[in-house]
Simulated assay, not measured.
Amino acid sequence: MNEFTWKDVVNALSLANMSLGLFSIFCSFCKKCSCASWMVLVSFLLDMAIGSVTRHLNICSRSGTELNDFAVFTTFGLASALLLGVDGPLNGLLAIMYVLAVSFRLCFYSTGIPFTYKGLPCPYASCILASTSLLTKGNTFILSCMASLMILFMMDQSYYPHDEILESESWKKMVYLGGVIMLFLCPFSIAAFYCLTWSLSYIFFPDALWGKAACLRPWY
């Protein structure tokens, strides 16, 4: 396939990611928090696949980048914030703060250091929020506490390694494959626990577990 065709494939994946986010928003409005959370978790895996394909094929497109950023904002910003519910003014305010945190991070957080993020990547924050929603059956208080923590992590100045799981060691690829299997073949609670453990390990052990492959690569 030529470069133009591969760009179309990547753009189609970004549109699929955005569609999952829009469906998640619809489910949140319909009070189907389990379905809404599940779609966010699927988007979490799809976003990793999009990044891997883009880097592997060295696809660079301004329109594709903007489309992917908009998909990330829709799914990991709006859809994830609506998992909190908007039944009261406090929840609504926290949802707005969450969306603003994602927007601020996407627009202004750039390290200039190869293979490094500044602040927790929003897909991981959304993964933790969606997993918590599934495990607690949408408990508003717990979700609000977790969302507040995720906002702090996203706005933090700490550095996190690039999560190039599909281009790294074999065991990391198995972690990704395990996530796919869990989400599509296991009960929501087991899949949520798996994704929550995965994301928390990235937060608390970023270099020890997830940064080795990045450190071994040459810096140009």
Results as ranks from 00 to 15, higher is better:
111 T>L: 08
3 E>L: 11
182 M>V: 05
26 F>I: 10
92 G>A: 06
48 M>C: 14
30 C>P: 00
130 A>W: 04
141 F>H: 12
211 G>L: 05
204 F>L: 08
25 I>W: 00
159 Y>G: 01
77 G>N: 06
6 W>D: 09
130 A>L: 08
58 N>H: 14
194 Y>P: 03
203 I>W: 06
204 F>I: 09
127 C>I: 01
161 P>N: 06
201 S>C: 15
12 A>E: 13
183 L>M: 07
177 L>C: 11
101 A>E: 12
75 T>V: 07
75 T>R: 00
12 A>Q: 15
155 M>A: 14
170 S>I: 14
200 L>S: 00
94 L>F: 02
101 A>P: 06
161 P>S: 02
58 N>C: 14
42 V>E: 14
16 A>D: 11
208 A>W: 11
34 S>G: 09
128 I>W: 09
34 S>I: 08
106 L>E: 02
51 G>V: 15
167 E>K: 02
131 S>V: 07
80 S>E: 03
78 L>I: 15
155 M>W: 11
12 A>V: 14
187 P>V: 06
46 L>M: 15
197 T>A: 13
204 F>A: 03
79 A>S: 12
100 L>F: 14
20 L>V: 12
84 L>N: 00
29 F>M: 05
1 M>Y: 11
94 L>C: 01
194 Y>K: 07
30 C>D: 14
114 P>V: 05
131 S>F: 02
148 S>E: 06
13 L>E: 12
158 S>T: 11
208 A>M: 13
140 T>E: 11
188 F>E: 11
29 F>V: 06
87 D>A: 12
105 R>E: 14
60 C>Y: 12
103 S>M: 10
108 F>Y: 12
142 I>H: 05
171 W>R: 05
45 L>N: 08
97 M>V: 04
182 M>K: 07
158 S>E: 09
65 T>R: 13
140 T>G: 02
99 V>S: 04
26 F>K: 14
215 C>V: 01
106 L>R: 00
1 M>R: 08
220 Y>W: 08
186 C>E: 08
105 R>L: 09
40 V>S: 06
101 A>C: 12
29 F>I: 03
4 F>K: 12
35 C>S: 15
86 V>W: 07
90 L>R: 09
144 S>W: 00
162 H>Y: 14
192 A>S: 04
80 S>R: 06
112 G>Y: 07
185 L>A: 10
200 L>T: 00
20 L>R: 12
33 C>P: 01
143 L>I: 03
162 H>G: 04
210 W>Q: 03
210 W>M: 04
103 S>G: 08
96 I>L: 15
12 A>W: 11
88 G>C: 06
87 D>H: 10
207 D>Y: 10
181 I>S: 04
90 L>Y: 12
179 G>F: 03
78 L>G: 01
134 L>P: 01
51 G>S: 11
